[in-house]
């Protein structure tokens, strides 16, 4: 019985270690885009993302504004400054899988706060639609 328990404990510890290792991203990257309904040339910097954006969002064109990335420090917290007063406060929550809490502000005003799981290769796409659908800010958040 004791051996069985020891075996189980070892198994759980190993699983935990593997999960923790696989789950910890080393950095977060964000891309700021503006979306609108005007027909426009596609931006080569958005080539890898354009198909999914077109398929899922109701905008006709996407314009790359800028991008920023930061390593995730030990406490999991970091701030990314993007262009035009946009900023992301990030908190990577430890535990099973990568979970990120994002506070998106624009010139100090709250845009949205979200907490979501983030998988490698699949970004979170944050969109803030205002009264008009031109130059709608969109932020792609990646863990890597």
């Amino acid at each position: 019985m004791r051996n069985l328990l020891r075996f189980l404990a070892l198994g759980l510890a190993l699983l935990g270690a593997v999960a923790a290792h696989a789950a910890q991203p080393t950095s977060i990257r964000a891309i700021l885009i503006t979306a609108s309904n005007d027909k426009a040339e596609s931006d080569p910097r958005l080539k890898p993302y354009e198909a999914e954006l077109q398929r899922n969002l109701v905008f006709s064109s996407f314009r790359f504004v800028n991008e920023s990335s930061a390593p995730i420090p030990a406490n999991g917290r970091s701030t990314l400054q993007l262009a035009d007063g946009h900023a992301l406060e990030l908190e990577v929550e430890k535990g099973g899988g990568v979970r990120v809490r994002v506070v998106w502000t624009h010139r100090g005003a709250a845009m949205m706060t979200t907490s979501l799981p983030l998988r490698a290769g699949a970004p979170a796409v944050l969109v803030r639609r205002g009264g008009k659908d031109d130059n709608v800010p969109v932020v792609l958040v990646f863990a890597r």
Partner: peptide, 9 residues
């Protein structure tokens, strides 16, 4: 598997 969060005024 992309997650889309859309906030609208």
């Amino acid at each position: 598997g992309w997650v889309f969060v859309v906030a609208s005024d």
